[in-house]
Design a protein around this nucleic acid. Structure first.
Lengths: 112, 112
DNA sequence: TAGTTATATAACTATTTAGCTATATAACGA
DNA sequence: TCGTTATATAGCTAAATAGTTATATAACTA
């Protein structure tokens, strides 16, 4: 996973979420993914590139095909970030400090 | 929460994630939120509008101030969607069908 | 080698959006 | 009422991006 910007941004698109949901049921090639969407193959290819760039999927080479699957570690960074909000919403303000402390500090700005 | 598009899209921006992280520590007014970011007040106001539109924050009226806080139910819909991926990545293919079954069906396209 | 299939890339267009400055609104204090 | 403070909105620009069609690449098949 490269960064949260890319991950959240990738998941903000309904087509890409649908692709991820499809991949949750198992590996699929580009054409297999393209079929259910009224969308051209190049468009799907680019969506896959975005998902791969965000670290959300992996691809293998299998002859002329490029089967995609979910990237195992992708969700954990998102979850780690969401924990901040979960803790706050749960009212667990004791634990919140711990959660915030585990977040990577960035250049001046708050935890991004 | 209106929809996942808005929620993920809102969280894709680092400034908005920082605002959410700040709100995780408690309510804050627009100016209080604007201060740590080298950014104008109108820019922050628009970020807040986006977050509110995505159902991630709530605002009250307090005189001339508009204190913001995290919306209690915001994260759950995201979590429910992420469960699809979590289950798949955990290899719990038995449970996956159940999770997919709980997702709202949309117009033709897969679970978005 | 020629044709087909699977995927990627290029070039374009339309839409969205993050920032800005300037200005409007609205409440508060004197 | 006047000036100040808090916030919102309008209008602009630059950058990103989701889709398109056309084309390139690369592997398989006959």
């Amino acid at each position: 996973m490269q960064n949260l910007d890319a991950a959240f941004s990738a998941m903000a698109d309904p087509t890409r979420r649908a692709i991820l949901a499809r991949l949750a049921t198992g590996e699929a090639t580009v054409m297999e993914l393209a079929k259910p969407f009224e969308m051209t193959q190049p468009a799907v290819s680019r969506h896959l590139k975005v998902l791969e760039g965000a670290g959300l999927i992996l691809r293998r080479v299998e002859g002329t095909k490029r089967p995609c699957r979910l990237a195992p570690a992708a969700i954990s960074e998102i979850d780690r970030w969401l924990d901040v909000l979960r803790q706050a919403l749960a009212g667990n303000y004791d634990r919140l400090d711990d959660v915030l402390a585990t977040m990577e500090p960035r250049d001046g700005k708050a935890a991004g």
